[in-house]
Write a protein that binds this DNA or RNA. Structure first.
Length: 273
DNA sequence: CCCCTATCCTGAGGGC
DNA sequence: TGCCCTCAGGATAGGG
């Protein structure tokens, strides 16, 4: 479900509601998420005050002045929301976390259970971030040559490179197709066959696509919502994603759907070379 | 090291 | 109705 813009929206709306809140009683379901979750460690966060909620790419960090902090990945269908304690529970609720001195609680709902929770210290967090590529939301121009070099070193299709969080973070399956459309690049082109100049256009296009989506609070096509439960408004701005056989907005040629590494890619055969 | 496949899950929607 | 198929914002172990 959530890519960089959606996760950043969740981080922003969680930060608004959780900053300076004290965590109370913790409850979890008995289903395992993507991995077995060490709930005992997470329970140690009871009574901590949340200092902020931040993100890097698709990873959320619920920070507190003391350690550990809480790391979360939403997977495909994970939703983190702040709700009234009395509001009805949705199916597949896996975590409820009381917010002391309020009528509300933090809830995690995830039907497919591809999400992840982990208590981690600053050292572990640093190690995780070190392995990931640069964040297009905060890209320093000094990082661009190395980023291009890494993409150019790969013989994989450019669409697959964009999805690799070790190369760069925040782009997922929607925005990979969208960025390549904006940059007019065929998603099947190999990373090693793209020029420096074109990579600069691609990076800029990807940033534009992500910024627009964030401005619109993300894309909701089925279940994504922010921490207030509000849907994203970016769906109408998408150019190619899930528009198979519909006319390209630029040249009217029907949009094509192909499969790359078992995932859908959408593009215009005329506009993208 | 790099690359590819299969896999973890539930639910929505389409065809028959 | 029901049954079967495909598809869905992600990431990772394991094989070649």
């Amino acid at each position: 479900m959530p890519e960089g813009p959606e996760v950043k929206t969740v981080a922003r709306t969680l930060d608004q509601q959780l900053k300076n809140m004290r965590l109370g009683n913790f409850w979890h379901s008995d289903y395992k998420l993507r991995r077995e979750v060490n709930y005992q460690d997470i329970k140690k966060l009871e009574n901590r005050v949340i200092s902020s909620v931040t993100c890097y790419g698709k990873i959320l960090f619920i920070n507190s002045e003391e350690k550990p902090i809480l790391l979360t990945q939403l997977g495909m269908t994970g939703r983190l929301t702040v709700e009234e304690k009395t509001s009805p529970l949705q199916a597949h609720t896996h975590i409820r976390w009381d917010l002391l001195d309020t009528s509300r609680e933090l809830r995690y709902v995830d039907p497919r259970r591809f999400g992840l929770f982990e208590a981690c210290d600053q050292e572990t967090k640093k190690n995780i971030l070190n392995k990931l590529g640069p964040d297009l939301f905060n890209l320093d121009t000094k990082q661009i040559p190395e980023l291009i070099a890494r993409m150019q070193a790969s013989k994989r299709a450019i669409k697959e490179i964009l999805l690799d969080q070790n190369i760069l973070v925040g782009v997922g399956n929607i925005y990979a197709s969208e960025a390549l459309f904006l940059a007019k690049i065929n998603p099947q082109r190999l990373g090693c066959d793209i020029s420096n100049k074109l990579y600069k256009i691609l990076i800029k296009s990807a940033q534009q696509v992500l910024e627009l989506a964030y401005k619109n609070s993300g894309t909701t096509f089925s279940s994504y919502v922010d921490a207030f439960g509000t849907e994203g408004k970016n769906l109408d701005f998408l150019q190619v994603f899930q528009r198979t056989n519909q006319a390209c907005y630029v040249c009217s040629t029907p949009i094509v759907r192909i499969t790359q590494s078992n995932r859908s890619t959408f593009y215009c055969e005329v506009c993208q070379k």
